[in-house]
């Protein structure tokens, strides 16, 4: 049999996808007015901080998904 789709792939919960969409939407400042000068916090404008926090959210969600999806056969995901 040729390897095809992944029969052991586990489904991710709906909240995962909702959070991922939120992070993806806010990762790039396409929704902001071009040329706006934001307040600076810790040396970064707010739009850049939003992009970084969204990126961090994507990293956390990716790590979670890897934790859930990539299991050994019979392995407890939390074990």
């Amino acid at each position: 049999m040729h390897p095809e789709s992944d029969p052991k792939a586990k489904r991710l919960p709906i909240w995962f996808w909702l959070l991922m969409v939120v992070c993806l939407v806010f990762a790039v400042p396409w929704y902001r007015e071009t040329g706006a000068q934001d307040p600076i916090v810790f040396g970064m404008p707010i739009w850049a901080i939003t992009a970084l926090v969204s990126g961090l959210g994507i990293s956390v969600l990716t790590a979670y998904a890897l934790h859930v999806v990539l299991q050994d056969e019979g392995e407890d995901p939390d074990g």
Partner: peptide
């Protein structure tokens, strides 16, 4: 370089 980037840059 610190302003919100334009549509092409996005």
């Amino acid at each position: 370089k610190i302003a919100v980037p334009n549509a092409t840059r996005c």
